[in-house]
């Protein structure tokens, strides 16, 4: 009897999860549409009070809903690797800084978890990683939805075998970086006036001197910097995976089948 009742119980448990995922994605898309398509005009005249609040609440709330929908789906083997990915994001991000690299490399852990444990684990790692990083660096907090998107896309790239060849991993990194840059730009503009590192601000300054609006300049900068960053991250993760012993990969059901 119980074998017959199990699938029904499972499908009824899946419904609220799907609802949370749909709500999370809808909130993120709606926030992006409000900020970019409707373009609040108050930014250059003032600093966009409603836009900043929508940016923070929409992307952070969307990321939280995604995490709430994804977490119940994850197995213990996926869960134990997620803190590792979060710690790697922060530690390698700092290491990259100490080696004097001009790119962030703060998504290596997210991409690695996505490739080993799947898109859902990757998305949750990205969002939670930025939330925890926010305890040390509050500027990371509003970018949680973008980080979740990077984890999701990296997992999808792994699902379709794009990490088996370096050039395919680089192409996937380019696309993921472009999408990540597009999502991050309005957050950077409406929350912090697009202020960032001297390197990224120099690129924005070039576009601003050509007469671009702040949002357009930040989007172009995001497309350039994030694409380059994610190409390097995806290639690095593909090389790390290539060097990993099969025993280490085999413990993850998702990676075993890819």
């Amino acid at each position: 009897m119980s074998s017959f009742s199990m699938p029904a119980a499972e499908s009824s448990a899946r419904r609220p999860r799907r609802l949370l995922l749909v709500l999370g994605v809808t909130l993120i898309v709606a926030t992006y549409v409000f900020l970019v398509i409707l373009q609040p005009t108050e930014l250059t005249g003032g600093t966009g009070s409603a836009a900043a609040l929508v940016s923070l609440g929409g992307f952070l709330g969307g990321g939280a809903l995604l995490v709430a929908g994804v977490l119940p789906m994850l197995t213990t083997s996926s869960l134990v690797v997620m803190p590792l990915g979060i710690a790697l994001n922060i530690a390698i991000g700092q290491l990259a800084g100490s080696l004097g690299l001009q790119i962030y490399l703060d998504a290596i852990g997210t991409v690695l978890v996505a490739v080993l444990a799947g898109p859902a684990a990757g998305a949750a790692t990205g969002a939670i990683s930025n939330a925890i990083w926010g305890l040390f660096n509050p500027f990371a907090l509003p970018f949680a939805a973008g980080a979740a998107l990077i984890g999701l896309l990296a997992g999808l790239a792994a699902k379709y075998g794009l990490f088996r060849r370096l050039y395919l991993a680089a192409a996937a990194g380019l696309v993921t970086g472009a999408v990540g840059g597009l999502v991050a730009a309005p957050v950077a503009v409406f929350m912090f006036g697009a202020a960032g590192s001297p390197g990224t601000n120099a690129i924005i300054a070039v576009f601003r001197s050509l007469g671009d609006k702040l949002l357009v300049a930040a989007t172009k900068q995001g497309l350039l910097s994030d694409s380059l960053d994610k190409i390097v991250v995806f290639v690095l993760v593909a090389l790390i995976l290539h060097a990993l012993p099969r025993r280490a990969i085999r413990q993850f059901p998702f990676a075993r089948t890819r």
């Binding site: 977490l71 119940p72 869960l79 134990v80 803190p83 979060i86 710690a87 922060i90 305890l135």
Partner: peptide
């Protein structure tokens, strides 16, 4: 959610170890 509690607690503990 116990999974979220585990991830947060474990990640915060792991960061200095990984560094």
């Amino acid at each position: 959610n116990r999974k979220l509690v585990f991830i947060v607690g474990s990640a915060v503990g792991l960061i200095p170890q990984v560094a």
